[in-house]
Measured scan of single mutants.
Amino acid sequence: MSRESDVEAQQSHGSSACSQPHGSVTQSQGSSSQSQGISSSSTSTMPNSSQSSHSSSGTLSSLETVSTQELYSIPEDQEPEDQEPEEPTPAPWARLWALQDGFANLECVNDNYWFGRDKSCEYCFDEPLLKRTDKYRTYSKKHFRIFREVGPKNSYIAYIEDHSGNGTFVNTELVGKGKRRPLNNNSEIALSLSRNKVFVFFDLTVDDQSVYPKALRDEYIMSKTLGSGACGEVKLAFERKTCKKVAIKIISKRKFAIGSAREADPALNVETEIEILKKLNHPCIIKIKNFFDAEDYYIVLELMEGGELFDKVVGNKRLKEATCKLYFYQMLLAVQYLHENGIIHRDLKPENVLLSSQEEDCLIKITDFGHSKILGETSLMRTLCGTPTYLAPEVLVSVGTAGYNRAVDCWSLGVILFICLSGYPPFSEHRTQVSLKDQITSGKYNFIPEVWAEVSEKALDLVKKLLVVDPKARFTTEEALRHPWLQDEDMKRKFQDLLSEENESTALPQVL
């Protein structure tokens, strides 16, 4: 008996699950189920560990084997000379395990699969056993689809999209007709009724959600790893209520002995410091949205989908001078704002400069500016000194954290500008005749005249004003913003236009 009217009423009120309206889709043409990776026989039982391990490696599972009696060998002398080797079968990115008779397991190899009674669906509900069930008529011709799209860092995100009359449910929550939600590992998919569980979705590319604290899981769906560094790992996640993407940084307390840091400095109150950081608001710094204190720290951040500045300059790639100017102007505005709010970044580098898009002209935002507030000064500097390429001379020669101030950030900005303009770092371990530390503390950077011949004198002058060993003589952010190279009204107008595109209400910060 159909429950279409009941569920449609529920759909009209929406769902609290991570779902959002989605535009129309072009329906895929039908194809045989076997060619799409559906096993030839149905099963109602969950797999054992041996079955799972075989399939996850990209080899055929026991459900897909063919009797050897149906095959015969071709003698080598009868092999056609022009026969080309077969292409290897792509490894599946996800697996659906059937929970009921009449449904088959599915190895997801393609990027898009339609499910329903219509014969054009890649996964067609046409098993005779299924057709005899009382629920068969409640399934729509095109009930739902599972697909994946390219996300940040060229990774993939799996989604389920509801197109049914009676509802598609993920972990008992209604997706909603015309809406989608991301699928995470071990999600249970039910059709027409929330208790009519048909599939379990296994994402073969992500970790299980159960490793994360419950308070975090209640608000966010964790997904793929976006990156990792000395101070922690960053994962893509989704807000459950809105389906908006965020980035979540995970900082290990054990790695940084944060408990010991608190004992050594009783004034170090991470929760208080995070609340201060959350109040920071500038178009060129990453917004801190939320914070969870569990076995590790979880910092929920605004997501930038254009990648890191590092990706644009790695491998001796240089940027156009006009692009360097647009990016560097924004970096200076961001660091100036942090300094005005009493925050020294201490870890400025291309990896911590994020881009809003893949376009050459785009907004940038500074991230990882609050680590000293979370990890403690000593722990952070011990970590950073392991990779000193961007560290100021006074940091390398000081004991502990004494003896330096916000000028350290201006040195790091000078190193970043040098790399963007030239395509190579000013200080490098590859210069074996002088140690990296000695290069930095003496201010002897690697200047290649033929490379810098293409760079304007004004740009080079600003680099020199920032890479000054004496912090008292080094340019401040205010002085850098007043430098002739940055007195470019076309560049500032472009920045204002980019801000307006992102948010019509965002105004250009005042600069002296």
Results as ranks from 00 to 15, higher is better:
E79R: 13
S40Y: 02
L204G: 07
P75H: 15
S56I: 04
A257Q: 08
I189G: 01
V109Q: 14
E70M: 05
G23R: 04
V25F: 10
A158F: 06
E239M: 05
T89D: 01
E76F: 14
S228F: 15
E86C: 12
P88S: 09
D6G: 09
S73P: 14
S2G: 12
D118W: 15
P80H: 09
C18T: 11
P21D: 05
G14I: 14
E263H: 07
E84A: 04
I157P: 14
N112C: 09
Y123M: 15
S12H: 05
E263W: 06
V200L: 09
L60S: 03
N154A: 14
N48G: 12
D6H: 14
G167C: 00
I258T: 04
R254E: 01
Y113A: 06
G259W: 10
K214W: 10
P21S: 13
E188R: 11
E149H: 03
C231W: 15
R195S: 06
H54Y: 12
T225M: 15
S56E: 08
I251L: 05
G14W: 02
T242E: 07
T68M: 03
E263L: 14
S61V: 03
K135Q: 06
S55I: 04
C108H: 01
F147L: 12
V246C: 03
S5R: 14
L106Q: 09
S120Y: 10
A261M: 00
N110Y: 12
S19D: 10
E149R: 00
L236Q: 04
R180W: 14
S252W: 10
F125Q: 03
Y159H: 04
S31P: 08
K177W: 14
C18E: 08
Y113Q: 10
K177G: 12
L71S: 04
I157V: 04
D101Q: 11
S140G: 02
F144K: 03
K214G: 05
Y113T: 14
Y212V: 04
F199H: 03
L268C: 07
G14V: 01
E173R: 03
C121H: 06
S187D: 03
K224E: 02
S50P: 14
N171M: 11
L60E: 03
I160H: 00
I38Q: 12
E70Y: 14
K142C: 10
A91I: 03
A261T: 11
R180M: 00
Y72R: 12
S31R: 13
L183Y: 05
T68V: 00
D77W: 07
G165N: 15
V198T: 07
R95E: 01
E64F: 02
A9D: 12
S16C: 15
D162N: 08
E173M: 08
T172I: 07
F201A: 01
S41P: 13
F169V: 02
S12F: 09
S2A: 11
F125E: 03
A215K: 06
N269G: 10
R262I: 08
S67T: 04
N186H: 02
E127A: 06
E263F: 12
K141R: 15
S16Y: 15
S40M: 03
Y136N: 15
Q10F: 05
A257D: 03
H13R: 09
V211W: 03
F202L: 07
V246H: 00
P80T: 11
S2T: 07
P90L: 10
S5P: 10
R145W: 09
N196S: 13
D118Q: 13
C18W: 09
A237M: 04
G102S: 09
F103S: 12
N171H: 08
R95S: 07
E64R: 04
N48A: 10
E271P: 08
I157K: 01
N185G: 09
C231G: 14
L183I: 01
I74D: 12
V198N: 00
D265Y: 15
K245F: 11
H143E: 00
M46N: 06
E79K: 05
R95M: 01
V66R: 04
S42C: 09
T138C: 06
V66M: 14
I160V: 05
W93A: 02
T272S: 04
F144D: 02
A257S: 04
P152M: 00
S252A: 06
L236H: 07
E87A: 10
R195Y: 11
D208Y: 08
S155Q: 09
N112I: 11
C108W: 02
N112S: 12
D101L: 15
Y220N: 04
Q100H: 08
S120I: 11
E219R: 14
N184L: 13
K214S: 01
P152A: 02
A17E: 15
F103V: 03
K135F: 13
E84D: 13
N196A: 15
F238S: 03
A17L: 05
D111Q: 04
K141C: 06
V25T: 08
K142S: 11
R262Q: 15
A267D: 05
E127F: 06
G151A: 02
S12L: 12
R181K: 04
T45F: 08
E87T: 10
S164C: 03
E70V: 02
K141S: 07
E107D: 11
N166C: 02
I250A: 05
P90A: 10
K224V: 06
N184S: 05
D82H: 14
G232L: 01
G178R: 13
F201Y: 14
S44R: 10
T26M: 15
T172G: 03
C108Q: 01
W114G: 14
E127C: 14
